[in-house]
Amino acid sequence: MISVSALNTLKFDQALCTGCGICVDVCPHGVFALNRRVIHVVRADACMECGACQVNCPFGAIQVDSGVGCAAAMIRAALIRKNQVTCS
């Protein structure tokens, strides 16, 4: 697994990837692109850690520490010392 951006936790392992292309379909920020059955991480910095790619990759080639990028939820979680962060 190789980290692809300094701005987020997205990691990708080319060796596990079969080029099935599901990650291209589910990503709402165009992070992946498929070119001749090979996946390229083209907009790594745009990843907002929604987790859709990791959840849907059938071959475990993607890892991301997913969660909501919501300050209010994180502050609430920090205040009540809870690790689970969800939006209300």
């Binding site: 701005l7 745009a46 907002m48 520490d65 990028g69 919501c70 300050a71 209010a72």
Partner: peptide, 20 residues
């Protein structure tokens, strides 16, 4: 404004945490 990050679909958790 920082709280509005929760309503967007482009702020990552890592990014928001750093900002906080």
């Amino acid at each position: 404004a920082l709280n509005f990050t929760g309503s967007t679909t482009f702020t990552s958790r890592t990014g928001v945490r750093r900002e906080m």
